[in-house]
């Protein structure tokens, strides 16, 4: 097992490098130059411009520039945000907890809905429950997160006035009240993201369960006289979860997309809203770094999925 995890880790490195190449090439191909302002400034003589360009290596061939950039990233030198007046890595670390808190809670909510509903729907395929669940799932993943967010605000904040629609980090309360307030303000963003996730997950779980539930070994388990609950939970689910884990991992990029939108709607100070505000204020170092962090998170979750995969299906880690 540990050998398998190590192998997966080693496979993750080339994909991270690949992603960094893609990002860097995109940046290098983009029109616009950090020194374009200097070029149009008549007070800066051309020799000074050329000297500055040479000093920062802007005229180097692209692969040298990439290596230089990669080296700086690896050494923790992520650049400086001109808008926030602080180092980019400090800024991201400050914003990351809020994002992880919302995404993590949403993911748990999605699993808590999708697994029971999907499993129950698969045990009674084409029943009324199954049909309702299926239709709702379809509707759920066709509703874009920005629209559900607005609907939630309209219903629960504007009409009913139950929940706050602006997320704050400095809650003026202590102890248990602080915890309650934190939960209360996270309900809507987590529900928006979690329900969206749950919709597609329910379909994955149901179809994976249906694939397994008809196999002979399940009939054998029933013939041994095991109860329905034992058969479903111990025999069917463990095998059905294997493809589900992969599908959930493949969904991660979409989850982060949803998180960006949710953070923007509810004004959660996470890295998603940081990305949008830096784009609007042309803060290139932050934009690059946040995109890279998102890419790293996706690779990390793929890695976790691979490890889970190996645990659920020991044959894979033996290969």
């Amino acid at each position: 097992m540990s050998q398998y995890v190590l192998r997966r880790l080693l496979i993750a490195i080339p994909s991270l490098l690949g992603i960094s190449v893609v990002l860097f090439v995109v940046l290098a191909l983009a029109p616009g130059d950090p020194f374009s302002e200097l070029a149009t400034n008549p007070n800066v003589p051309p020799e000074v411009q050329a000297a500055l360009r040479a000093k920062f290596g802007l005229d180097d061939p692209i692969h040298l520039r990439y290596l230089h950039w990669l080296n700086a990233m690896l050494h923790g030198d992520w650049g400086f945000s001109f808008v926030s007046r602080m180092n980019v890595d400090a800024l991201i670390l400050q914003r990351l907890p809020a994002t992880l808190y919302v995404i993590g809670s949403a993911q748990i909510l999605a699993l808590l809905i999708a697994i029971p509903v999907g499993v129950y729907a698969a045990t009674k395929p084409y029943s009324l429950f199954d049909q309702i669940a299926n239709t709702l799932a379809f509707v759920g993943f066709s509703l874009p997160t920005f629209f559900t967010g607005i609907l939630f605000i309209l219903i629960f904040s504007v009409t009913l006035d139950w929940l706050p629609f602006v997320y704050t980090t400095d809650i003026k309360a202590t102890g248990i009240h602080w915890v309650l307030e934190m939960i209360r303000q996270a309900i809507m963003p987590v529900a928006v993201l979690g329900l969206f996730q749950a919709a597609s997950m329910t379909r994955f779980v149901r179809s994976a369960m249906l694939d397994v539930i008809r196999l002979d070994y399940v009939t054998t388990a029933r013939a041994k006289g095991l109860g329905q609950a034992t058969v479903i939970v111990k025999h069917v689910m463990r095998n059905a979860m294997i493809p589900v884990v992969t599908l959930i991992a493949l969904q991660m990029p979409a989850v982060f997309g949803g998180a960006i939108v949710t953070e923007q709607i509810f004004r959660i100070p996470g890295i998603g809203s940081l990305l949008i505000s830096s784009i609007l204020s042309n803060d290139t170092p932050v934009v690059m770094a946040v995109t890279f962090v998102f890419a790293c998170l996706v690779v990390l979750f793929n890695l976790i999925a691979d490890v889970l995969y190996g645990w659920l299906d020991p044959r894979i880690s033996l290969r």
Binding site: V26, F256, G257, I260, I276, V287, T291, F294, A295
Partner: peptide, 15 residues
């Protein structure tokens, strides 16, 4: 497939 789509989309449009 493992590229984060929305951030990349935003980055490309920004650039």
């Amino acid at each position: 497939l493992s590229l984060p789509q929305l951030p990349l989309l935003l980055l490309l449009i920004y650039l």
